[in-house]
Structures are given as structure tokens and as C-alpha cells.
Amino acid sequence: MKLDRKEVLHIGLLARLGITESEVDKLGEQLSNILENFEVLQKVNTNGVLPTAQSIPLKNVIKKDEIKPCLPQSEILANAPRKDGEFFRVKAVLE
């Protein structure tokens, strides 16, 4: 599987990584090499095999509906890059 420039830029956009023109070629080559190593999986017969998402499966993990103390607003906002009073400040989402 070889990734072309267009695909690398598209994935970069999906992941919002700000991939620059100068990175595209190197990244495309490295990712293509890695993907080539994945081809080996196509040889494995997985007909009728169920996928594993968790190695130690648990069923119906439910917490008790209890009110517990939570962190105060000031502590949650302490790491905010930009805040305004008791709010996170963000750039306009709708323009």
C-alpha cells in the first residue's frame, strides 16, 4: 500500500496535525513502509474469528449512582491556556 501526497495531506487534515508540505514526502514514505509490513496480516485466515477489543473482557461495568465530591472549578481551570472568569475561552466556533 503506497500513500500518495494527496492521501497523506487528507489524513493529516482528519487528524488536525497541521502537516506541512515539507513533511509530506518523508512521512508518506515512512507510513508506506510501515503499511507494507502490515500486508502480512492478509495471509492469516480469520474466517469465523471474532475480533478482540479487550484482552480481559468484563461485562456490564456499572457504577453505583452516588454523588461524590468533584474537583472545584478553580482547579479545573488552573491549566486552561485561556479563560474568562469561570469559562474556558476559545476562538469563535461559528463565524
Partner: peptide, 20 residues
């Protein structure tokens, strides 16, 4: 820009791989 400057090369490589 936050993600471009905040993450290093290997982290970006793996995010790209996973996104793909």
C-alpha cells in the same frame, strides 16, 4: 498549529497511522 508544534515526530507518525 497547537498539534503541529505540540507533538513530536513519532507521536504524529502514530496518530497518522491510527487515523488511516
Amino acid at each position: 498549529k497547537t498539534r503541529q508544534y505540540g507533538f513530536g515526530d513519532e507521536v504524529k507518525r502514530r496518530i497518522m497511522l491510527g487515523t488511516y
